[in-house]
């Protein structure tokens, strides 16, 4: 099974039809385990039960960046290798990425509420994620604005790659802007200092959410391929007068 075999949309549809149910089942099982572990994890001595938002927030934040990575690879596929499924992959990923980013923002602000006293603080991390969210929405608007998908594909691919290059610059600028105004960040989430009772459920949740993304992405790609087929069938129907 190579990338060339997958290039044929028909084979992709056949293969993904077999894979998606298994992926979905694995996602459900892992999510169940992860949620159970998260629920039974001990409360944090400082943050209390609110720390449990972390088990949802961190996987969403991780995926908000991972999906942009996937889209960047797909964009390279569109521009460099001209892989026929690349733009389908990129287009299908954008709304899912935007949803994860939105959930990261939502859970982040819910988590921040007890600590900051407001739902929103112009915290460097959250602000960067907000900009990422705007970029996702812009990309989706671009896909929708152009009628013909193959024409939109190249523009979207260029924008995605420019975004990928710009994201670290934006992140750096926002960090610098933020420290300029408020020296100490209010929220600390250490990576390696996490206790094992937190780390394992977090990892399970991260894997579960990644599987969720893969499942949704494959399903969305199938929908996009079918949508394009409907479109070309409609165009054929328009061009021939029924006898």
């Amino acid at each position: 099974m190579t990338l060339i075999d997958l290039a044929n949309p028909t084979r992709f549809l056949a293969l993904s039809a077999r894979v998606v149910p298994w992926l979905a089942a694995a996602t459900v099982i892992l999510l169940t385990i992860g949620l159970y572990q998260s629920a039974t994890a001990p409360d944090d001595y400082q943050q209390g039960a609110t720390v449990k938002i972390m088990f949802i927030h961190v996987p969403n934040a991780w995926l908000s960046m991972f999906v942009w990575g996937v889209m960047s690879v797909a964009s390279l596929g569109t521009l460099v290798w001209r892989h026929p499924l690349a733009d389908v992959a990129a287009k299908a990923a954008a709304p899912i990425g935007a949803s994860f980013t939105f959930l990261a923002l939502l859970t982040g602000s819910l988590w921040g509420r007890p600590m900051w006293g407001t739902y929103w603080e112009w915290d460097a991390r959250l602000t960067s994620v907000l900009i990422l969210f705007l970029m996702y929405l812009g990309l989706m608007a671009l896909w929708r604005a152009v009628e013909d998908p193959s024409r939109a594909a190249r523009a979207a691919a260029v924008l995605t790659l420019v975004g990928a290059i710009n994201l670290p610059i934006i992140k750096f600028s926002v960090d610098w802007w933020n420290t300029l105004h408020q020296p100490a960040s209010v929220m600390r989430m250490g990576g390696s200092t996490l206790d094992k009772s937190f780390l394992i459920p977090l990892l399970v949740m991260a894997v579960a959410f990644t599987l969720l993304f893969v499942t949704l992405h494959l399903a969305a790609m199938r929908n996009e391929i079918l949508r394009r087929r409907v479109r070309s069938l409609q165009m054929m129907q328009a061009s021939q007068k029924a006898a």
Binding site: T118, E121, T127, L130, L134, L137, A141, W177, H181
Partner: peptide, 23 residues
Amino acid sequence: ALIGVLFFLTVVVLMPFAVGPDL
């Protein structure tokens, strides 16, 4: 129509970068 909302959102998000994150 929704691009207008997106523009609105972007303009508002830009402001704190100019005036600082002082709530």
